[in-house]
Design a protein around this nucleic acid. Sequence first.
DNA 1: CTCGGTTTCGGAAACGTTTCCGATCATTTT
DNA 2: AAAATGATCGGAAACGTTTCCGAAACCGAG
Lengths: 342, 342
Amino acid sequence: MKNVTIKDVAEKLNVSISSVSRAFNNTHDIKKETRERILKTATEMGYYPNPIAQKLVRNKTYNIGVVVPEFINEYYSEVIRGVQDVLVETGYQVLIMESDNKVERELKNVKTLMQNMMDGLVICPSVKSGNLDYYLNEINTGYPIVFLNRIEQNFPAKKVLFNNAKWSFFATEHLIYQGYKRIYHLSGSNDLGITKDRTHGFIRAMEKHNFSKNNYKVIETGILSEEAMAIVQRLIDQNDLPDAFMCVNDLVALSTISVLKQNQIEVPKDIGVIGFTETKIANLVSPKLSSVKQPTFEMGKAAAEMLMKLINNEAISSDTIMLNGILNIRESSVKQKRPLHQ
Amino acid sequence: MKNVTIKDVAEKLNVSISSVSRAFNNTHDIKKETRERILKTATEMGYYPNPIAQKLVRNKTYNIGVVVPEFINEYYSEVIRGVQDVLVETGYQVLIMESDNKVERELKNVKTLMQNMMDGLVICPSVKSGNLDYYLNEINTGYPIVFLNRIEQNFPAKKVLFNNAKWSFFATEHLIYQGYKRIYHLSGSNDLGITKDRTHGFIRAMEKHNFSKNNYKVIETGILSEEAMAIVQRLIDQNDLPDAFMCVNDLVALSTISVLKQNQIEVPKDIGVIGFTETKIANLVSPKLSSVKQPTFEMGKAAAEMLMKLINNEAISSDTIMLNGILNIRESSVKQKRPLHQ
DNA sequence: CTCGGTTTCGGAAACGTTTCCGATCATTTT
DNA sequence: AAAATGATCGGAAACGTTTCCGAAACCGAG
């Protein structure tokens, strides 16, 4: 179980420690033959350089940390895959930690990762404005940090974001073009920045198309399935139904459809529904859910690339990378069947 | 940006390096007052022990690695949460790596983690029998490894498993008790050990209840949604339909329901469907999907606890921890409405 | 043959800790 | 009062590397 060290190889070959080190780091000042001789017996002996010792002396770990609020749905899982996709090639390790949507735990994770000498961090904040002062302070000391999602656009840091307002605008417009005349927006939790952006997009679409104020509503639902269900049920009871729901996310959309069905209201025949931040389920449920797909994988990639530039002191054109999505129109939001040839 | 080291604090206070170290490690041989004095100015100076240096000298990293095949669905995400739940308290860090269901990448991940001096590993294999020889070899040198899921029950290593055969038996029996007389099992990919176990459970239930061979079938579907859909459509075309499907997982179950609906076949009125390895969607679709819930969180916890015992050289009662699940009966498998009072 | 310039290599410091081994000093026991 | 004990602390080795510096060896040119 005793690990074989650089010293062991050196002694076995009657060379110096430095030569073994040079052989492994492939520096210029070593004869080709000795290098090969060393590498050969080293691998025979099962030697590899102790990464901890390397990190200590190099003051660089080739580790980067990713903090996510959760990976209970596929969103951050795909972000992580994007990050890994660009970093694996560069020899960097990706260390992942989960904050469970708690700001305190997020801060703890970040501190832990920094104390473990990560070369840089991708932080996906738990909620808007948590530990921003602390982060800002670290950034000012030169520590490479890239934020992803759920952070104010004007926050003075590197970040990659999704254009929530724009795509909720598009999603709403799609409903309008389908002929829906009375549209309610189920807005999730209004103190979340991203959902607020989606609300803005919704309202902008309403105003652009001259919807009168009594033909649209913004209704806060919270983020839990049960909360959304209760609210939709209440609307039914109060006989206050629109002919389309534009939902803050797929969970709310599915919850809405579920309640409507329980009340013998058919989607999309009676009421249209569209989701947001598409999940895999969208294609599996019936009716298939229309939704806006976020480029999660690409966002992860963008963040990683930005972080690498930061670490390597390369120029970065802009503080903020704002990505666009795809509006996937399926069944839940199409009022009438389209002609087959379309 | 220069990090403050133990030397800096020592010099500032005119004490030795060892004393500062003792203060931080709270050993016995240091006066209480000096300890407090050191700790006070140390935190004032923003000093904390360099974890890399600590790891080097202690030959222990307090890091443990988790290798998962994917976290695209919630299964391994919850496993990871379980692992973290027990390890966070003990001061261990959890480093996560993803194999993308590829055995080569899995091996690479494991090697990377071991070279980075993880104190132990939880390995969730990608597919049955991948790098088993290599792992066995490492285990024999005393390296602490716990496997989770997708590994043969008689593989000579520590592992935590789900009792697939037993619960697929229960799920099948549930269909039988509902009065379904002709049941097909959509078995996923037969070269996956776990799905094979589920098939065994299905057959055992069939035989126990004296189903004749022409009243049940095992049909291999593969793991992709499209594959399952195609197969169910073929059954419909061939007019070879059972009155219930017992599916290898929720994805196959939902795909099945989707195709049935497209053909105007109602679930559960015409045909009953039950899934396996319950996902959150089960409760959101209509009809709500009956399924077997695996104790993913608990499995993660069990693996972590086992690993801690391994690392601390504590006794382990059994090589294998086999956990049980919950059969969640919802709508998709109940033939007739139950009386309200039940 | 000598001299300056390359290669090639070894020695040793450095990275930031922990920990063993003594040394000092105060306190208690005989 | 002398000796033994215990508490408290400093010095230095050790962990396994990289890298700077200088020394040796070699090589071609003058």
